[in-house]
Amino acid sequence: MPNSRFAEIFKIVTADRAELLSDWLETQKAAGVRRPDLFSDAELTAQLGQFLDGLTAALADASEEPGGDLRDEEWAPLRDALLDILRERSERGAGLAELMRFVQTLSNPLAARLTEEVADRPELLSGELLKINRLLNTCATYAGTHLLDERDEIIERQRDEMRELSTPVVQLWERVLTIPLIGTLDSARAQEVMENLLNAIVEHRAEVVIIDITGVRVVDTQVGQHLLRTASAVRLMGGEAIISGISPKIAQTMVELGVDVGEVTTRPTIRSALAEAFRKVGFQIVRGEASQRG
């Protein structure tokens, strides 16, 4: 037996469920929330039904209005239904505003039904309408917060992954390392690059390191300084740095900006840098017999 607090609304969602559902569907279509490109009518109806079922189950038990996060145990059925729908909709690519309006569109049909229901007791009307609004707003806020939290988590995780991926030091050959730089090179990352590189030099006893900037989007004065500093630190350790991936455009920019590479070796491609590295550590590349004949 439903608690008296939501008795009127409970009556509507149980007795008039079918009408309410079709009204809600119409409202969504009219409000442009429907997204026929993402969901078929059947799927949408199923989602609306799921929400109404959750709402019904929660209202049957609820004695108090839900807190902001729907955390109270008695609102669990509604929360679970909402989470299911959120997951399904956001996986298909529905946006945040859309997800919030998805819930809010229930307000009008429910209010209309309610007005009919309590026509003979007008003193109840405003109080019940307020309850509906508060309830649906809570649901919409919950949906929004939940979605934002989830996205924050994803962004955080991706940032960590990116940081790890962004500074891999690879051993190309005995005593030869390379660090392919991709993306942007700000101060924080330059520091990280330097640290990883210097530690790898100790670990691999590397004499030559190739810093490849083919994938660096913008090379300005600051990036140039970071690169030269890294090269200096490598030299202080007793190694030698070759900066590769200098395109004609980058070379021109660096000269125009007055970035003086000094004694640091630079090469246009990683291929020529590797050849130079082999020369420095005393290896030779010799064409095999088979390909000589070819």
Binding site: Q191, V234, L236
Partner: peptide
Amino acid sequence: MRPAVAMTLV
């Protein structure tokens, strides 16, 4: 030279 020293010097 240690890496940390090299970094400080640059």
